[in-house]
Simulated assay, not measured.
Amino acid sequence: MELNEIKELVKLLDESSLTWLELELDGSRILLKKEKQLTAAGKQEVPVSVPAAASAVQAEEPDPVQPAAKYREDLITVSSPIVGTFYSAASPEAEPFVEENSKVKKGDPLCIIEAMKLMNEIEAEQDLEIVEILITNGEMVEYGQPLFLARSI
Rank of each mutant, 00 (worst) to 15 (best):
T77V: 15
P109A: 10
L75P: 08
Q145I: 04
A89F: 08
V46N: 14
E123V: 00
E45L: 14
L38I: 11
D63T: 10
A69Y: 12
Q126G: 04
A68D: 05
V141P: 03
I6K: 13
E93Q: 06
S17M: 11
E15Q: 15
A89W: 03
A124W: 09
V65E: 13
E8G: 07
L23N: 07
K36N: 14
L18H: 03
K103G: 07
I82C: 04
G107D: 05
I113Y: 01
D63F: 06
N4Y: 01
L128T: 12
D74G: 07
A59G: 09
I135S: 01
R72S: 06
Q126A: 11
L110D: 05
A69L: 04
F97P: 14
P62Y: 15
S88R: 04
I133Q: 13
Q58S: 09
V141K: 06
A115K: 02
I153T: 09
S55K: 09
L9T: 01
E121A: 02
I76T: 10
G138A: 07
A54G: 05
E129N: 13
I113C: 03
I130F: 00
V48F: 01
L32V: 12
L21Q: 05
S88K: 00
A94M: 05
M140S: 07
V78N: 12
V141N: 02
S152D: 11
L149S: 12
L118M: 13
T85E: 13
E142N: 15
K33H: 01
D63S: 15
G144T: 02
A94N: 14
P64G: 03
K33W: 04
L21E: 01
M119H: 01
V46K: 15
V78F: 00
K70Q: 06
L13D: 02
L149N: 02
L18F: 06
Q145K: 13
G107W: 04
V98S: 08
F97W: 10
S80D: 07
I76F: 04
L23G: 08
D63N: 03
D74E: 08
I112Y: 06
A115E: 08
L128G: 05
K36M: 13
K103P: 00
E125D: 09
A115P: 01
L31S: 12
C111F: 12
N137R: 12
I82V: 02
K7C: 00
Q145H: 09
V65C: 13
E95V: 01
I112V: 13
T85C: 11
S55N: 12
L21G: 04
V131A: 11
L147R: 09
R29Q: 07
T39E: 10
D26N: 15
C111L: 05
E73Y: 03
I135A: 05
P146R: 10
M119T: 05
S17Q: 15
A53G: 12
I113S: 01
I76V: 11
V50T: 09
M1V: 01
L31F: 03
F86K: 10
A90D: 10
